[in-house]
Design a protein around this nucleic acid. Sequence first.
RNA 1: CGGGGCGUGGCGCAGCGGCAGCGCACGUGCUUUGGGAGCACGAGGUUGCGGGUUCGAAUCCCGCCGCCCCGACCA
Length: 518
Amino acid sequence: MAKSGFVSSITRQSEDFPGWYNDVVRKAELADYSPVRGCMIIRPYGYALWESMRDELDRHIKRTGHSNVYFPLFVPRSLLEKEAEHVEGFNPQVAWVTHAGGEELNEWLAIRPTSETLIAEVVKDWVQSYRDLPLLMNLWNNVVRWELRTRLFLRTAEFLWQEAHTFHATEEEAAEEVEIGLEAYRAVAEDWLAIPVVKGRKSENETFPGAVYTHAIEALMRDGKALQAGTSHMLGTNFARAAGIEFLDRDNQRKNPYGTSWGFSTRMVGATIMAHGDDFGLVLPPNVAPLQLVIVPIFRTEEERVAVAGSIDRLERELMDRGAFVPGVAGASDGSSRRPGGLGGSTGDGVPGLGASAAGVRYRVDWREESPGFKFNHWELRGVPFRLEIGPRDVAAGQGVLVKRVDRSKEQVPLDALVSQLPDRLQAYQRDLFQRALDFRAAKTHHVDSYDEFKRVLDAQGGFLMAHWCGDGDCEKRINAETGATIRVIPFDSTQESGRCVLDGARSTRRALFARAY
RNA sequence: CGGGGCGUGGCGCAGCGGCAGCGCACGUGCUUUGGGAGCACGAGGUUGCGGGUUCGAAUCCCGCCGCCCCGACCA
């Protein structure tokens, strides 16, 4: 297939995974570098992916009783420094505003790396009684963490995310809240993005600065490396005490409320790319795919063009009757859906809402003046789940050739039945993609019982290693230094099992999940 | 922040003292169209920035800036 004119090929996954990732992000037009070091420009197709997961998560957040709020971008230095561990953890990554209005500021302003301190400061005025609790807030915003090494979506100096902040009268209730946040992340990752995740607790070394403990979901990428996909923190009373938040409880005692915070970022766009993509580019789960179906007309003569257009017109009418719509994104803003004398598949401006449960199929007809082969590759690179080819032969037979992106299998389908089948086909595709990821993870998850085996398996194929760990932080650091693997989580569902730490042989009661990670 | 590499049309590169070029992409036209089409014509540049050497600098020298890759820290 590598004939002359084959120009925009992408690096093969097996040759150079990071190179493949970069090619996909750039060539599928998800994102670009910016004039500012470490920052990224998210392009329409990439932003549509973020909007889809953002909106789905927002529904979970609201369904569980949280309200969206907004807090400012700037955090006064004195506030950021109120919680000792927190400052220490974040200081190296904070960007400061030192001048404004042409003068040096009396007090530097941090550009928020996260908002715990600012929120605690304000909440102390809002919470007086146990009747004011729980306080369940969420903010969608951007944060800045001055990273030394950045990668598009996975780690950028500025990123978009959601940070939930809640306050509770009791520790038990706060602990439940930590799980509510984590469950929302699991649901979005698995049910929406088709990425299986492992829920668990972070080791002390990996706990959020200022938190009592951190729970997280961990996902496996196709190169065998792990990616933290969302974290939920039990803050205890740490930030409340630092800010002086107190409430009068039922027993007439003044107490500090228990806090939680949890976050989910644009990193998940990177996770979606790396969890499903292949050598042809993106493979998108239908739920997040900005386009679920692309129709490619094929013809030679004017006569054939008219016949094919007639066939596609009928199909479009049927699609529109069922609530289909044509996203104004997808790397074909040049009007690929417009053509003379047809329905016009008006592109409209802006991006339609994605993923509403009753929504119809998101589709586009590619009438651009390019060869069919070019279009096949163009849309495969962009991960569109289904492609329908309609040519003269198909028109004569009243059918089309339906191609599934995930395995590029082709099937001849009667056009009169296709539209009614599409919702089911998309659902099946979503399920199959999740199952494929589950199978992949199962094949890449290994129980290892000695340090030699640990290192051998890690080097041979990466993946998730379930190994006994004594619980000692120094042991963990040494394993990391010697193998590059870290404890991703101590999984909640790992069964009690007596064993011995792979490093020092000390007694252990359960296995931790180790992996090399992003 | 340490090590390495690179800055030349939108992208990828060549040119290494003597007229700034090639491929792709882009525009127009014709022929094409079931797996990245062909031909013709065309448009596009302060060679990262500043200084120096020279009759002459993309090219040699000095300084600066930026970016990428690899390592320690991180959603």
